[in-house]
Write a protein that binds this DNA or RNA. Structure first.
Lengths: 202, 202
DNA sequence: CGACGAACTGTCCAACTGGACAGGATTGTC
DNA sequence: GACAATCCTGTCCAGTTGGACAGTTCGTCG
């Protein structure tokens, strides 16, 4: 089903293939996506994939650069945009910017994290580092937390954010609605801030 | 690589196939596992799979029954074992019982949640219901939480628990050690209890 | 115009997949 | 020991996969 039917102009096939790959990898995962599906989605011969990227893995690398590159960019702009209130709401804003806007990127990130190899570890390392940096800035210095809890704080924060991302399809079914719908996302984000601030049992 | 080399006795092939399926599905996922791999792991002809389970999907159903059945059993015994202190530590104990002991079951559960279809939604629904029940018991009545936060409490609790499960391979790499090693699990569990109790910013 | 290189295509291929099936081995029963 | 049911195997099959490759189209530059 070539959902993007228009045949690309000569010379545009490369970007069309990257777009098709991003879409289908995000939807179905890398292994479950065939080169022929990608070619059909890009309205292009499947032999062209090999010409431009030399292999299926080559296309994946190109898509990774594309998605994770724009990801890096989004992180940077999110960091600058917030006028640095120094409060926890920034976490929510950053999350919304990273994961709220673009469903396709969200699903692609999910696939990278879940397909679970070196790419997943590399991405997770970046996310942990980012969360750690943010916490370092927001937590009182010196933190009142005992070290063996402080050590897990960034991971805990991240799990609250990534949980819905990783479980999106199942969560959608259980909730009966899109967990990333703007109002839902805002409510979740607020609940997360409150949990981090006071716990559930304050 | 038939890691379980011993040829099963006549009549034992069925259970051998279920065990092999559980192992390989947990390690590689359903789609990435071939019927021939399973047969080799069970030291049995691959045609036998069809005889006993009629199809690859049939074997998956049998493995699901096996794993998720023992899962249900584990939940029940965890519930009875705790002498009902009514405190948060029970969450940690239940988690440890569910996910700590058996690496293979842990990975299988991860696959079910992540491969993301109806089975994932059904399992998640059970987990949410369980977490909800637990919170209902542990939270002060009436809860001081505003309803729009109370609504997400079970999910938040679950994300803290499931995060490491879903990200296990990547997390292992980033941490440089097994996130489910007993001491690590205990520390994480303790950190989770403290987060739920007081937040990070108490 | 002509030719040259880059972009693109149709078609073939070996490997592998889940499944089909006919027949062989083993066990229990009379 | 014969027979039948169950368990099990070797082997074939059609479909799909990523990749290989020779050849065609197209823009561009002389």
């Amino acid at each position: 089903m070539p959902t993007a039917p228009a045949k690309p102009n000569r010379g545009d096939a490369r970007v069309a293939l990257v777009a098709a790959g991003r879409k289908l990898f995000a939807q179905q995962g890398y292994d479950a996506t065939t080169t022929r599906q990608i070619a059909a989605e890009a309205a292009v011969s499947h032999a062209l994939l090999r010409y431009h990227f030399s292999s299926k893995a080559g296309l994946r690398d190109a898509v990774d650069d594309d998605v994770l590159g724009s990801f890096t960019h989004a992180v940077a702009s999110a960091r600058e945009e917030g006028t640095d209130h120094g409060d926890l709401a920034e976490v929510g804003r950053a999350t919304a910017l990273l994961f709220g806007a673009d469903q396709e990127r969200r699903r692609y990130v999910r696939r990278v994290l879940v397909d679970g190899d070196d790419r997943a570890a590399a991405l997770l390392a970046r996310l942990v580092a980012g969360a750690e940096r943010e916490l370092e800035r927001l937590l009182p210095q010196p933190s009142a937390l005992p070290p063996e809890q402080r050590r897990w704080a960034a991971y805990q924060t991240l799990f609250l954010i990534l949980g819905p991302l990783l479980l999106e399809p199942a969560l959608h079914t259980v909730l009966g609605s899109d967990p990333f719908a703007p109002e839902t996302l805002a409510e979740r984000s607020h609940a997360n801030q409150r949990l981090l601030q006071h716990g559930l049992f304050d």
